[in-house]
């Protein structure tokens, strides 16, 4: 290979360590397995944890999709995809979810359902849901082991008392298989229910914080909530009580990005660009 770079960049010892960690992550759903996390040639915080997972998983017969904020064409997604294409000769890349075997994503789970033969890798900036109530990792590890989440629940309860609403917008704490509570990465609340009994394995990689965790397929994933204050996804209804639609494909079910157009009007568009394009193709035959 040119530049003397290994297939998938990492040396085989680094891959083996990640592989051992991935297996333990699957065996202990929601537990953050520590790993040594090598430096990648892109910034910590730009998806190096997800990238290391992808590089430990990928083989020449894989078809890869990389998305950032739902888009295959955002600069960071392009950058990661280019790097993986450069270091993994032989792989295919795609923007179509259905063609992908491996999907690396930041901040979104694709709109369309995943299949059993696909693996979703999510990039994680903050792996630990307990960090808002306990800064010491030493103590958090014990709390996780004992499934002691009382302080987190108190925090949510205080929110409700103060605002009559749970104010956590994204990174919504989610309990996996009735034990560990995870930070599901900064996916919107809209995506959280799709962690529950997913067909595909979902892996989480936090490079800077050096953690790997997993939600296996067909595994219980419950967003934290109270009986009288249910978990709620983002609300896209307008002032007339109508669900807003994507201005490009007309979808009234997808997660929408909101922005201000040239005329100063507020407009909405699918966040998942692949889904949006496929909807438009269907509409135009």
């Amino acid at each position: 290979m040119s530049n003397g770079i290994n297939f998938a960049f990492l040396d085989e010892y680094a891959k083996r360590e990640i592989r051992r960690s991935v297996i333990k992550a699957i065996c202990i759903p929601g537990y953050q397995v520590p790993y040594s996390s090598r430096e990648m040639p892109m910034g910590r915080g730009f998806g190096t944890g997800g990238l290391q997972l992808t590089l430990a998983l990928i083989g020449a017969d894989d078809t890869l999709k990389v998305i950032d904020q739902g888009s295959d064409d955002s600069v960071n997604a392009v950058n990661l995809r280019k790097f993986i294409e450069m270091t993994c000769p032989g792989i295919d890349t795609t923007t179509r979810l259905q063609e992908a075997t491996l999907i690396q994503s930041r901040h979104r789970i694709p709109e369309q359902p995943l299949r059993a033969d696909q693996i979703l890798v999510l990039q994680v900036p903050y792996p630990d849901a307990l960090v808002i109530v306990e800064p010491s990792e030493d103590k958090r590890k014990i709390m996780h082991g004992e499934a002691d989440y009382s302080r987190l629940l108190v925090k949510l309860y205080e929110d409700i008392v103060k605002f009559d609403e749970i104010t956590i917008s994204h990174r919504y704490p989610t309990r996996i298989n009735g034990h560990y509570i995870i930070d599901p990465s900064p996916i919107p609340r809209y995506d959280v229910p799709r962690l529950n009994h997913s067909e595909a394995l979902i892996l989480f990689g936090a490079g800077r914080e050096k953690k790997i965790y997993a939600v296996p397929p067909h595994c219980l994933a419950e967003p934290l909530a109270f009986d009288d204050v249910p978990f709620r996804i983002e609300d896209f209804t307008d002032s007339h009580g109508e669900r807003r639609a994507c201005k490009l494909c007309g979808s009234k079910t997808s997660f929408l990005d909101e922005f201000i157009d040239e005329q100063g009007a507020r407009v909405y568009q699918c966040s998942d660009s692949d889904y949006c394009e496929q909807q438009q193709e269907l509409a135009h035959g």
Binding site: I26, G59, A116
Partner: peptide
């Protein structure tokens, strides 16, 4: 490794 991932996932 991919076989192992699949095996432990299912």
């Amino acid at each position: 490794f991919r076989c192992l991932v699949d095996a432990y996932s299912r």
